[in-house]
Design a binder for these strands. Structure first.
Length: 456
RNA sequence: GUGGUUGUAGCUCAGUUGGUUAGAGCAUUGGUUUGUGGUACCAAGGGUCGCCGGUUCGAGCCCGGUCUUCCACCCCA
């Protein structure tokens, strides 16, 4: 037992069935991306540390996997930092590379680095694994796939409208109904902070507000107070806590709350514009919902913020997220390039589809027919037939050993192979095949053409 | 990173207040059946009880550490 090999926590092996199911999701998403006009790129699994560090906040830095320098990495460390056990300083000494934490920052780096080759607006998609040194939980892994689509070089709100349709399109294709696309706007949050006199505490304020549906109104207020937001300001928020009703009615009440804030009003107008367009265009299976408590990725989002919630029947964190970032490439030296994008969490979508039994039965690829092996002479006869079947597109194979029939039949059963072919001395001499249907148990002797007809 | 939780055969799990040689079902292998699978019956193989240490005459069981699982924080797909 002690010698039994294992894999690091938060990572997984995938068996053939799981790979087939994952491929099904990948293909569905990729198809939608391409239908919407996005082009694929790929970036390295690891980047220079300075590309990633400081882009996701302190919390994010902690969760980035650092790669130890090769060679005698201790030789070059700062003596003082080493003696002081200053991990932070030491890290930059002994590690110069880090595993990709998401796909957005590497994309921003890509855009800046290749700015002269790119035709803007640039619509790219990217499906690759990312790594986070997080503690695993259900639906949280340390290695998982993100499927991102982003547009850079356009400030048009039509992009936001397109992304909502893209979400709807993918989840409809996956037959996952009841998905909620939540939308908010950084400008609305800034506006609220402004109105309650807490502009300088925007992050603290939104982090607390974000927990509303989880810990409730009272605790949210407590947290805000403890972060130094005034009682008077919090009382101005009261209408926010009871905000409900249709998209339009929420917008109407927000308008009055935020009338004093120019930025907040701008945010409301944006959200209203998107909602009107979506109402006009319609969604197949998803629902668009305004959620002013939604506050993710504030380190770089500047406009729209998206988050996709799984159907309420499944306990699962968000299965997608995204937003607009007006100046992400600024940190890499290319200002004034606006971007907006969304991400699909493949691993979580998998868990949701599995739980709801939504994978089509056909996703698992299997062979169509197994030839039972009776011996050398028969095997060669079978392989000749198999060669012809394969060129006709029938997935077929010969059981490699002349084992007992029971064992070979069992093997066919275990693999749920629909047909077996039995060729013994008798069939060889009459140039025929005994084809057996493993589901019904029926079998009959046929010519090669007859067999081909049945298997097609 | 903080707090809690879990680990016994390939898989799912029993295992009494600490007491002989740690069990079951499923799976595997062989047989009843040498050209017919799924069903049934018979038999066999398979475990240093996650790992390291401690307490004890004696530990799967108690204690500490560690890894893993899941959960709540934090954060997030």
């Amino acid at each position: 037992m002690a010698q039994k090999p294992s894999i690091p926590k938060g990572t997984r092996d995938f068996n053939p069935e799981q790979v087939a199911k994952r491929t099904y999701i990948f293909n569905t998403i990729r198809n939608a991306f391409e239908t919407f006009g996005f082009q694929p790129i790929e970036t390295p699994s690891f980047e220079n540390s300075e590309t990633l560090m400081g882009k996701y906040g302190d919390e994010g830095d902690r969760l980035i996997f650092k790669i130890l320098n090769s060679g005698d990495y201790l030789a070059k460390v700062d003596e003082h930092a080493y003696l002081q056990r200053d991990s932070l300083k030491l890290t930059s000494n002994i590690s110069e590379k880090a595993l990709r934490y998401d796909l957005t920052v590497p994309f921003a780096r890509y855009v800046v680095q290749h700015q002269n080759e790119i035709e803007f607006p640039f619509k790219r998609y990217q499906i690759q694994p990312v790594w986070r040194a997080d503690r695993p939980q259900k639906g949280r892994f340390r290695e998982f796939y993100q499927c991102d689509a982003d547009v850079v070089g356009s400030k048009s709100l039509w992009q936001e409208v397109e992304f909502i349709q893209l979400y709807d399109s993918v989840f409809s294709a996956l037959k996952l109904e009841g998905v909620t696309i939540k939308i908010n706007n950084r400008k609305i949050l800034s506006g609220i902070a402004e109105v309650i006199g807490a502009s300088d505490k925007l992050i603290d304020f939104t982090v607390a507000l974000d927990k509303l549906d989880k810990i409730g109104e009272v605790k949210v207020k407590e947290e805000m107070l403890s972060k130094g937001i005034s009682e008077e300001g919090i009382s101005k928020l009261q209408p926010l806590f009871t905000l409900s009703g249709s998209f339009e009615s929420q917008i109407a009440s927000l308008k009055s709350i935020l009338s004093a804030s120019e930025e907040g009003t701008k945010g409301i107008e944006e959200v209203a514009f998107i909602n009107e367009a979506i109402s006009e265009l319609g969604l197949n299976t998803a629902t668009l919902q305004l959620d002013v408590t939604l506050a993710r990725g504030l380190n770089y989002y500047t406009g729209a913020i998206f988050e996709v919630a799984a159907p309420k029947t499944v306990p699962m964190g968000s299965i997608g997220g995204g937003g607009r970032y007006d100046d992400l490439t600024g940190i890499f030296g290319l200002p004034n390039v606006s971007g907006v994008g969304i991400s699909f969490g493949l691993d979580r979508i998998y868990l949701v589809l599995e739980e709801l039994g939504l994978f089509p039965e056909t996703v698992t690829k299997n062979i169509d027919v197994l030839f039972i092996n009776f011996g050398e002479k028969e095997a060669l006869f079978c392989l000749k037939a198999i060669k012809k079947l394969r060129s006709a597109g029938i997935r077929s194979e010969l059981y490699p050993d002349a084992d007992k029939m029971k064992k070979q039949m069992n093997h066919a059963n275990k693999r749920a192979i629909p047909f077996v072919v039995l060729v013994g001395e008798e069939e060889v001499s009459s140039n025929s095949f005994t084809l057996k249907n493993m589901v019904s148990g029926e079998q009959f002797k046929v010519s090669f053409d007859g067999m081909l007809q049945h298997l097609k």
